Computed example of a mutant assay.
Amino acid sequence: MLRAPENRTLIKRMMIKCADVSNPCRPLEQCIEWAARISEEYFSQTEEEKKLDLPVVMPAFDRNTCSIPKSQISFIDYFVTDMYDAWDDFVDLQELLQHLDNNFKYWKGLDERKLRGLRPPLEPK
């Protein structure tokens, strides 16, 4: 069954797609770093579209109003969780799924505190 060309192609496509959306499955510090990078890319795109008077493709990524925690929660809910759950049935991904769960809780915690950035504010000394 796994040797059938169409199944091998499907497996390869699934691996590539999982790799493409894997940021929330990394350890927390790496997840935060990649969330910062992708957010900055999207903020810049939105600013460029506005500057050139083009239609804004991702209006949620306005630097002044965007909630990064909300965007990460939505991304995880919409793209990542179901795909990785399905992939876990095929390949053991317990460590990645644990990171995914921890990171989702991290973003949820920031969102519940109505924070829009990547990290909670530093505690006063």
Rank of each mutant, 00 (worst) to 15 (best):
K114M: 10
T46K: 06
P69Y: 01
L122Y: 00
Q45R: 15
C66H: 05
R26A: 06
S39N: 08
P59K: 03
K12Q: 11
K125I: 00
K108N: 12
K70W: 09
D77I: 05
I38D: 15
P69C: 06
P55K: 07
N64D: 10
V21D: 13
W107E: 07
L10V: 09
I68L: 03
L93Y: 09
V56M: 06
I32R: 05
A35T: 09
I38G: 04
D111K: 00
R37T: 13
L100A: 04
D53Q: 15
V91L: 11
L96M: 08
A60W: 05
T9M: 13
T9K: 15
V80S: 00
I73G: 07
I16E: 14
P24M: 10
Q72H: 04
R26S: 10
Q45M: 12
D20Y: 07
E48R: 09
I16Y: 11
F79I: 04
Q45S: 06
M83N: 07
F75R: 02
R3L: 13
D53Y: 12
D77M: 03
S39K: 04
R8I: 06
K108L: 14
E112D: 15
Y106F: 14
K125H: 02
D82Q: 08
F90H: 12
F61T: 01
W107H: 01
I73T: 00
D101V: 10
D77K: 05
C66A: 14
C31G: 04
V56I: 14
D20C: 09
S74I: 10
L115Q: 01
M83E: 08
D111N: 11
L28A: 10
A35H: 02
Q30P: 00
K125A: 04
R63A: 12
C18A: 15
I73P: 01
R26G: 07
E48L: 03
A35P: 04
M14D: 00
E6H: 14
V21I: 15
G109C: 12
I11D: 00
E123F: 00
T46I: 03
K114A: 14
E40K: 11
R63H: 15
E47G: 02
A86H: 09
